[in-house]
């Protein structure tokens, strides 16, 4: 126990730096990933002829190629072309595009999972596509997509460890530095960082679970399931 406290106190500024890098990558990556998920997911089900194809191609590319190669591409190939994102920027954009491609499938699946009758009713009410999606379909799909997006968020947080390959001093980098220090035990070095990753992931998923519960409550899904039955019984009585 005293080993751990000693290591924590010795490495506090470094762990703090690592934590900040990891948090930047996580929050930035999640933000980009959400935008990418929503845009590509909506494009995939759009009635316009070209958009679904474009969305499909982008998703297949980012899902089908290695994240590490994508990160190297952003970090090494783009700057000579005049677009220098820096290591943190490249990490955020790379993680966001890659996980966003997966996320767009969650979004598309959730939009398609909204019952057909809901879509048909919006047509019978002459609602335009943007209107029906924004006001009727999205609020219902949102509750369906949150568990999937939550999963991806946690995976992205842990996936930020690849930033090490871009030379960033994130949590994983400092874990490795601690490992090399004879004063810090191997278990201690990785144990501390395990815990820190876990805490970030926990914070993210708790937040999203809260959103999920709120979304379900709005749809009346968490209110007592028996309410409809009871209303029926009352109406009959």
């Amino acid at each position: 126990m005293s080993d751990i406290l000693q290591a924590l106190s010795d490495y506090r500024p470094y762990l703090w730096e690592g934590l900040q890098v990891t948090l930047q990558l996580s929050l930035g990556g999640v933000a980009v990933a959400i935008v990418v998920s929503v845009v590509l997911g909506l494009a995939a089900i759009s009635p316009l002829p070209v958009l679904p194809v474009v969305s499909r191609v982008i998703v297949e590319f980012f899902r089908g190629t290695s994240l590490v190669v994508q990160l190297f591409f952003l970090y090494y190939v783009l700057p000579p072309l005049g677009l220098d994102l820096g290591p943190v920027g490249a990490g955020i954009v790379g993680l966001g595009l890659n996980y966003g491609a997966y996320g767009s499938e969650v979004v598309r699946g959730s939009l398609n999972a909204v019952p057909k009758g809901q879509w048909e009713t919006t047509l019978a009410l002459s609602m335009s596509w943007p209107l029906k999606v924004r006001r009727v379909v999205w609020p219902q799909a949102w509750a369906l997509m949150l568990p999937g997006l939550n999963n991806l968020t946690v995976m992205l947080v842990k996936g930020t460890a690849v930033a090490l390959l871009l030379g960033l001093h994130d949590l994983t980098y400092w874990a490795d530095e601690m490992r090399k220090d004879p004063d810090v035990g191997l278990w201690t070095a990785y144990g501390i960082v395990f815990l820190l990753y876990y805490l970030i992931a926990l914070a993210c998923s708790s937040g999203l679970r809260l959103l999920e519960r709120r979304a379900q409550r709005r749809l009346g899904l968490r209110a007592d399931v028996a309410v409809t039955d009871r209303a029926t019984a009352e109406a009959v009585a």
Binding site: G117, Q118, E120, T121, A124, V136, L219, L221
Partner: peptide, 14 residues
């Protein structure tokens, strides 16, 4: 000009 009522009601739950 056309409206429809469905077998399954299809009220918007949100």
């Amino acid at each position: 000009r056309i409206g429809m009522v469905f077998q399954q009601f299809n009220l918007f739950p949100n």
